[in-house]
Design a protein around this nucleic acid. Structure first.
Length: 859
RNA sequence: GGGCGAGUGGUGGAAUGGUAUACACGAUGGACUUAAAAUCCAUUGGCCGUAAGGCCAUAAGGGUUCGAAUCCCUUCUCGCCCACCA
């Protein structure tokens, strides 16, 4: 038999009597000590150490340090005034990593700030009749308090808030640099408009055709707006994704899909009556001989020109206006039938001079490619459905090897696979993929088409018709046109005491003293731009500001940015996979091109943490299922909350909140607390220190735990299993402690094991560990203590528990000396009684040996 | 429609080719207590068996392998992302 609860795990104890005896002895000692042990007081301890850290500037990075730098950053919050569990999870993960790195001797930068511009402040201001600034700063104060209560290791001297002029003036400065080189520009075009927020939205902010913030359906409006030319960097933004191998694959895929680079050909069709050229974009030039009609987007300029005077003109114009009224959702829905009309015009397919009909249809988009397509119904499902609906001809040009004799009239769906070309003149017989290149070459030679690369990425629309944001530093002058505000006049300050009606339009346009200015060029009358910048501008470079927060005459100090960047570990939610993370990459690349910094990517490693839900649903005020972290702190303490949130699931997975978890975490911390108290008492009373029988087991467990924990803190970040393995070590220490108490002696090994638990746990539960570390007699604080190291030697056990299988089924477990010779091992295994029973006199076919672990005898 | 990921006890989860269910939660029984809470001890995937022990089980089915939760194929279910992108 074996003793389950501790040291005896691998040690067989003969006879039940001995076991009972042992347990009874343990019980005695337990009941004796329980009376004198108190639970730990989280409130008192947490306050004590938070003050200590603050007094000692414990988390201030060194200047001119010869230590290796480590920059760990969590996505900064919007100051809503209340911390939610998602924040707690995000910041706890970051804090554990930061504290671990500090203990490993890195010079760690771990800052925090607030993304404090944005609409909720305006809404709250309207609701409460106060100004957004007041509301925002009140919220920041509350959140700082809560963050401090969780004991996060931030250097608060670097705190930033984006609504402050000393921050947003640099947004304006950046905008101006972009304006100077044509990367910030104004154009009129259809934009996404949220009727509820009464503002424009970037493409990235439109989710399922609805506003990302309020979920209202977005409409299209034709407006003149400011854009940032992110497309200038589209190639490098795509290529450099390959250098981000420490990003989750799916984030890279999402960005790559968003940028959406595709290689194709632009082919020129001529309209027969006007001789106008209609360019179509395709990636399937191999099917050009199967193009049986052309479709132009209803919004296409050329459409109105070619239909002029045709009998079909009216029906086409009616169709255009009908489509313009359709919402984007309806239009793009895949289960709604595609609508279109014949234009009465014809085009010549340049590869065979065939005359084909020109149609216009709502399934062709103006915004992508050339806004016109060649339709190949035999090999494109959308074209196929449309052709069937309108009885348009089709022609098979790729042979489907599974149905080689299929006639076109028998097709039930488009064949989109590969195969040999047919009905394709000189290209017949060639495999369609190799034909692609040949056809492009031929088209370029004959000037009927040319290679073209298309991107889905659009320029970034940054104008917002809102008040609570960075004013765009532009002045409109009657004489000089668009004039940028001179650098010496920055920041263009947001007027602070202003009434927000919420009635729409930029609130700034009502502030006379703001809009009316003198033109910096001609000193004539001029007006300011009243739109503000999207808040994603603020967060696109805040990680750079943290490197030199107080820089007064530049957005950052180049040397400091070059020292700290890139961010070694970035942590945040997956919802920013394309928004913030793409914009930040864009800004970084722009700065590099301007010579402002040296790094080309902002975030080397990215961890996207999962959502904290309640009963399978997102926690939200409207659902009324919000769990307040502050209440949990009051009830159990910050350390318990931190342990709980990390223990529940691996960081990348979502999980359901369960208060039982905090309770369990609290019990675990108490077990550690009690164990240390018992040890201290024992050490004080002990007659002597000597080696004890559990030492070697404890040593092995301690070193394997250090190894496992260290590994996870470096890569993987599976904090749930980190905590389990620390729990296992504690579960080993407690019975050892009982034995030591009985004998009234302690061993150095026991002390080391206890020290290790406190050290390993300290990044996760820093307050209690600081307290215990001090109680254990260590000076200068655990944050300055050295991270424990494991000895490779100690990981080897003298004895191993060998699993013996017969025909792959476990039949015996034998304790053998480690590194036993193969022959000796075989003879020991085969002479084992249980194994003998299973093998009997069957001939042994093979024996597989996994060293120090397992033997499989095949009979 | 396309892409990516996942499916393991009553629950959260562990194990990434070698003892399936670590560590917790919950549950049940017990100790302590006047009692409760807390704490401690024991049991806890299913089936058969007094026990020793045996058999079965990682969504379903098949394959590779001495050996599969893990690799491959098929199917189902769920989640996330993208989606008329030519």
């Amino acid at each position: 038999m074996r003793l389950r609860f501790g040291l005896g795990q691998n040690v067989p104890i003969e006879g039940a009597g001995k076991r009972l005896n042992f347990i009874n002895l343990l019980r005695l000692s337990i009941s004796e000590r329980v009376e004198s042990m108190e639970n730990y007081n989280s409130m008192e301890i947490e306050g004590k150490w938070q003050n200590f850290w603050q007094r000692n500037n414990s988390f201030k990075p060194e200047t001119d340090s010869d230590k290796k730098k480590y920059y760990v950053l969590e996505m900064f919050p919007y100051p809503s005034g209340r911390l939610h569990m998602g924040h707690v999870r995000n910041y706890t993960i970051g804090d554990v990593i930061a504290r671990y790195r500090m203990m490993c001797g890195f010079n760690v930068l771990h800052p925090m700030g607030f993304d404090s511009f944005g609409q909720p402040a305006e809404n709250a201001a309207i609701k409460r009749g106060i100004v957004p600034k007041e509301w925002t700063e009140g919220c920041i104060e509350l959140m700082v308090k809560e963050l401090k209560k969780l004991g996060f290791s931030y250097d608060w001297d670097r705190e930033i808030a984006t609504h402050k002029p000393e921050y947003y003036r640099w947004n304006q400065w950046i905008f101006k640099r972009m304006f100077d080189c044509g990367l910030a520009y104004k154009k009129k075009s259809p934009v996404n408009w949220c009727p509820l927020c009464k503002t424009t939205l970037a493409n990235e902010e439109v989710i399922d055709d609805a506003c990302w913030r309020c979920k209202t359906e977005v409409v299209q409006k034709d407006l003149e707006q400011w854009y940032l030319k992110i497309t200038e960097f589209q190639d490098v933004l795509l290529e450099d994704l390959n250098t981000l191998y420490d990003w989750p694959q799916r984030v890279r895929t999402m960005q790559s899909n968003w940028i959406g680079k595709s290689f194709g050909v632009e082919i020129y069709f001529r309209e027969t009556s006007t001789d106008k050229v209609i360019s179509v974009f395709t990636t399937r030039q191999d099917t050009i001989f199967g193009a049986t009609y052309v479709v132009i987007a209803p919004e296409h300029q050329i459409l109105k020109e070619i239909i002029k005077g045709k009998p079909e003109e009216k029906q086409v114009l009616d169709f255009i206006s009908k489509v313009s009224k359709k919402s984007k959702v309806v239009r793009s829905s895949t289960d709604v039938k595609k609508e279109g009309v014949f234009t009465g015009c014809f085009a010549i397919n340049p590869v065979n001079n065939e005359q084909v009909q020109i149609w216009t249809a709502d399934y062709v988009l103006i915004g992508y490619g050339s806004g016109a397509i060649m339709a190949v119904p035999a090999h494109d499902q959308r074209d196929f459905l449309f052709a069937k609906q309108h009885s348009l001809p089709l022609r098979i040009v790729i042979k489907d090897s599974r149905h080689p004799d299929l006639e076109q009239q028998d097709l039930t769906c488009a064949y989109e696979g590969n195969g040999e070309l047919i009905n394709s003149a000189q290209f017949n017989g060639i495999d369609n993929n190799s034909a692609k290149l040949k056809i492009v070459d031929w088209m370029e030679q004959d000037k009927i088409g040319q290679k073209k690369v298309c991107f889905k990425l659009r320029d970034w629309l940054i104008s917002r018709q809102r008040y609570w944001g960075t004013p765009i530093p532009i002045i409109y002058c009657k004489n000089c046109g668009i004039v940028a505000v001179p650098d010496q006049d920055l920041p263009v300050k947001l007027p602070e005491n202003i009434k927000i009606s919420g009635k729409g339009g930029s609130p700034l346009s009502a502030v006379k003293e703001f809009i009316n200015v003198v033109c910096p060029k001609c000193s004539g009358e001029a007006k300011r731009e009243t739109d503000t910048m999207a808040t994603f501008v603020d967060s696109s470079w805040y990680f750079l500001r943290f490197c030199s927060t107080n820089s007064k005459d530049a957005l950052f100090v180049k040397d400091e940015v070059n020292y700290w960047m890139d961010v070694d570990q970035y942590i945040g939610g997956i919802e920013h996979a394309v928004l913030h993370l793409l914009y930040s990459r864009f800004f970084t690349k722009f700065f590099k091109k301007q010579g402002l910094l040296d790094c080309s990517e902002p975030f080397r490693k990215l961890l996207t943490q999962g959502m904290v839900k309640k009963d399978g649903e997102v926690m939200s005020k409207s659902r009324g299922n919000v769990v307040d972290p502050d209440e949990m702190i009051k009830k159990y303490g910050a350390d318990s909350l931190r342990v709980c949130i990390l223990f529940a699931a691996p960081p990348e997975d979502g999980f359901n909140w369960n208060e039982k978890g905090t309770d369990a975490a609290w019990r675990f911390l108490n077990r550690v607390w009690t164990a240390v108290q018992r040890f201290l008492k024992l050490k004080a009373l002990a007659k002597c220190e000597q080696n004890l029988e559990f030492d070697s087991r404890l040593k092995f467990k301690m070193h394997t735990t250090i190894k496992k924990v260290t590994k996870e803190f470096n890569v993987g970040f599976k904090f749930n299993t980190v905590i389990s393995s620390i729990m296992e070590l504690v579960n080993e220490i407690i019975p050892a402690l009982s034995i030591a108490e009985l004998k009234q002696v302690y061993s150095k090994m026991l002390e080391n094991a206890i020290d290790s638990v406190v050290l390993l746990l300290s990044p996760i539960a820093p307050h209690i560990c600081e307290e215990l570390w001090e109680l254990l007699g260590h000076k200068k604080g655990i944050i300055n203590a050295e991270w424990p190291k494991y000895e490779i030697k100690a990981l080897a056990q003298d004895e191993i528990n060998l699993i013996v299988q017969v025909n792959s089924k476990v039949r015996a477990k034998i304790i053998l000396p480690a590194n036993i010779g193969e022959d000796e091992l075989k003879s020991k295994v085969l002479s084992n009684d249980k194994i003998k029973q299973w093998v009997k006199d069957k001939p042994i076919k093979n024996i597989f040996i996994i060293k120090n672990k397992l033997v499989n005898i095949v009979v």
